[in-house]
Design a protein around this nucleic acid. Sequence first.
DNA 1: AAATTGCGCAACTCAAAAGTTGCACATATA
DNA 2: TATATGTGCAACTTTTGAGTTGCGCAATTT
Lengths: 105, 105
Amino acid sequence: MKQDIFQAIADPTRRAILTLLAIQALTPNAMAQKFDMTRQAVSKHIKVLHECELIKPEHSGREIYYHFNAKKMQEFDHWLAQFRQSWETQFNQLDQLLTTIKEQK
Amino acid sequence: MKQDIFQAIADPTRRAILTLLAIQALTPNAMAQKFDMTRQAVSKHIKVLHECELIKPEHSGREIYYHFNAKKMQEFDHWLAQFRQSWETQFNQLDQLLTTIKEQK
DNA sequence: AAATTGCGCAACTCAAAAGTTGCACATATA
DNA sequence: TATATGTGCAACTTTTGAGTTGCGCAATTT
């Protein structure tokens, strides 16, 4: 069952994992040590992140290093794009309001 | 209980509501008609979006128009910023790889 | 004032997701 | 080969969240 990136980042632990992995690749055990949580719990988060391809595994002997996949994270950027115009518009309106108030003085 | 914006956008219906409201302000009833869903169900989504300030109510008689709050949506942009460097780095590495392959030909 | 309309709130059901425990498998080390 | 280590998978419990039904309140309409 394919996971969706929006749900993947909804969880604080998963966001923390992504922040860690953006700096350096880590094994599941290494991640579990960072958070006060069993390895299996972290492993489930890893599974979610992996299924939606936000992270990628790199096998090295019996260890698995998970890497952050920046390309996938860009999908948020694309989703956000539809709102950029809105916030620019709202800020322009704010500017206009401020200008109007200034002129009224 | 304060909601968090990451959880707010995790739900597809709430994302659809945000997309609608970015275009124009709507009442809860108007939203419910857009989706095949009871008004109360939409109302719960509105509550979540309102609690984390992604939308703002504007009372007009007995109707309530909900507006998209672009300023709040920018928080995603800020959160994403920490990863921008990562994906630029990864793309530069891809560029270098492609260049290397090209030179080997 | 009575009826209608638009809303929000609370209680309930049902499904999904987070976390634990236990197990199986592959890779390393003695 | 025997043992230890790193990992994923499955079953289970507990919590969370989406959606419905029913109710009450405030603003309009007749």
